[in-house]
Design a protein around this nucleic acid. Sequence first.
DNA 1: GACTCGGTTGAACAAGTCTG
DNA 2: CAGACTTGTTCAACCGAGTC
Length: 302
Amino acid sequence: MQRIKLNVFKSWFDKNLTGKEIDFLLVLSFYQDKRGVTRGVYYKDMMREGKMSAQTFYDCKKSLTEKGVISSVEGQDDYDITLIGNDFTIYGKEDYEEGKVKYLSTTYHLFRDPYFRTLKPKQKLLVMDLLNIQMAGRPNGVNAYRIYRKNFIKKYANIKQNDGTKSKGLLDITVRTLQKYFKLLKYYFSVSLKNGMYFFTLKSKFAKSGVNHTTENHITIQHLVKAACRRNKIKDPDAKEQEKIEKVLENREKEVLNQFVNLSDIIRSMIETINEKIPDPRKWNRRLKATLFIKKFNEAVS
DNA sequence: GACTCGGTTGAACAAGTCTG
DNA sequence: CAGACTTGTTCAACCGAGTC
């Protein structure tokens, strides 16, 4: 479920997030389930995926918790992390059809672009906001986003109004700083100024989505299985067995989402059965066996 | 290996000047 | 207006050196 609810995203504007905190949240969004929960968040995975140091991982986890953006439960050398407010299970088919579900998709190539990772937090938020405005209701993003220069500046930057009072923009930066951001905006958007009006068009190579809806679920399931294997110390799980398990879980997505079903427990039980004749756990054969896993899974959900 | 503390530093910031 | 170049200041992100 590579989606961030729009109101969740909007709340980031006044949380004083750092660049790495945003990267942290984006990586979570790639793997979270429909409830906004990412199980088995492992610091080494985050270091690789978010291009951050170990220290930064712990710093971000702590600061984001303090800022009320995530909540975290300790696992075994990893964490179950919830992106607060990002629960999509409350929506039905009708809600989607009626366009009631407003969200920012993180499947766009833009979020895999290495340059994006190097941007400062306010630059990231600005790019994401413009991306959202441009793509909202326009799946192909074909139409340019038009806004008067005056309104654009007032929306994002702090300005002095005619009566002398100051107004704060979304980004809480000076007009000059906003002006400087244009250099990077032009990397992602075609920008032109005509008759005092800006035209923004997201460049097509960034607008492409690397992931369709089926793959979105697949990525989440894959991550769940990977995390459950790590928690049970299964090194190099057999690819074929893993694939069989993932296929079944994908077809039974709703049951997997049930928070009382813990894949890690099921895999532990599977390993216990495989090794029931070996009393010493240190000598256990830690491997995946799809048929047995599915049996245990059925027992767990019944 | 997982995790934390303390200290360093490079980069972004506001604000000023100046150019086409 | 859009942007280049500057300066002093601040702090995000990381590294090294630990502990458990």
